[in-house]
Amino acid sequence: MIRSFFIISIIVLLQITLFSQGLNPPALSSSSILEPNKKKFLPGFAMDGKLETSWVEGVKGDGIGETLTINYKSPVLFQVLAIYNGFGDPRLWHASNRIKKIKLTADENYEETFNLKDSLSLQKLELKKEISAKEIKLTILDIYKGTGSEDTAIAEVNLISDGAHSILIPPKNTWAIGKWKTESNVARITVHSDGTCEMGYETAKMLCTWTDKGSYVQVSLEAELPITKTDKLQLRLKQGGTNPIVEVNGKHLFIANKDEV
């Protein structure tokens, strides 16, 4: 059990579960789009249930004042804005801008601002009161600077209510305790004794859940891991001792990062 617990501490993204969109699906639009002709960063990607796709604004500069607008045919009742902040692929998250402060406007008669953490893990922003609205607009007010781009991104956003999307909130946060690497990426790793785990590239921390299966550890992810292209992983200890190597789905290897990059 101890060895399995150590193994699981190496990897990955959490599991996202989106329920049915129902009969009142949202329509998304934005004030700008990065590379609009290539259709890689459309506003609809911010509500498609996939972390690997993201809306990215496209104006010159950091995107302050740019907006993402969600429209419904009939009003939806909600009190929580759930958001995955920044670009959804954890390998690229640190390079792009993330939102530091955001304004929510609903049907032009409700307005509230929120401060966001600089993390890719799910953030639940609770409004002062439950409101009903057909149009919800999110405006970027301030950002955390990316290391390689001026573009600001939103990986995923949802309104928690019966009429809009709903999401299954993961159990609880965990704490980063070390670093591992693949052949091309450095991953920070986490452990938790209650069956939750966390990993991230740079500081893009995300949750996951794990189960001890005896000879291996089964991990449930929030989305497809970019390296493995699957949302389920089997982790096996291939080599122990002072130089542990973990095999992922029988073909990918994670080794200790002695360089402490």
Rank of each mutant, 00 (worst) to 15 (best):
2 I>F: 05
9 S>P: 04
10 I>F: 05
10 I>W: 07
12 V>P: 03
13 L>Y: 01
21 Q>C: 06
21 Q>R: 13
22 G>Q: 13
25 P>H: 09
26 P>G: 07
28 L>D: 06
28 L>N: 08
29 S>G: 07
33 I>R: 14
34 L>H: 15
35 E>F: 14
36 P>Q: 10
37 N>V: 06
42 L>F: 03
42 L>H: 02
46 A>E: 02
46 A>M: 01
47 M>F: 06
50 K>N: 13
50 K>R: 15
51 L>I: 09
51 L>T: 05
51 L>F: 02
52 E>H: 01
56 V>S: 14
59 V>W: 04
69 T>Q: 14
71 N>V: 10
75 P>N: 06
76 V>S: 09
78 F>R: 03
81 L>C: 04
82 A>E: 04
83 I>H: 04
84 Y>C: 06
90 P>E: 07
92 L>H: 09
94 H>K: 12
96 S>T: 12
96 S>R: 14
99 I>A: 03
100 K>T: 03
104 L>P: 07
106 A>H: 05
107 D>P: 12
110 Y>W: 08
117 K>P: 02
118 D>C: 11
125 L>P: 09
126 E>W: 02
127 L>S: 08
127 L>W: 07
129 K>R: 11
130 E>T: 15
132 S>T: 10
141 L>M: 02
145 K>M: 08
146 G>A: 12
151 D>K: 12
161 S>K: 00
163 G>R: 03
171 P>M: 05
176 A>Q: 15
177 I>P: 01
179 K>I: 11
188 R>M: 14
189 I>P: 00
193 S>G: 10
196 T>V: 15
196 T>Q: 14
198 E>R: 08
199 M>D: 11
200 G>L: 13
204 A>Y: 05
206 M>G: 04
209 T>K: 08
212 D>I: 04
213 K>D: 09
213 K>F: 09
213 K>S: 10
215 S>T: 13
217 V>N: 05
218 Q>Y: 09
219 V>D: 02
222 E>S: 12
222 E>T: 04
223 A>T: 13
224 E>W: 02
226 P>Y: 11
227 I>Y: 09
232 K>V: 15
237 L>A: 09
240 G>I: 03
243 N>W: 02
246 V>F: 08
247 E>K: 11
250 G>N: 05
254 F>K: 08
256 A>L: 12
258 K>Q: 14
260 E>L: 13
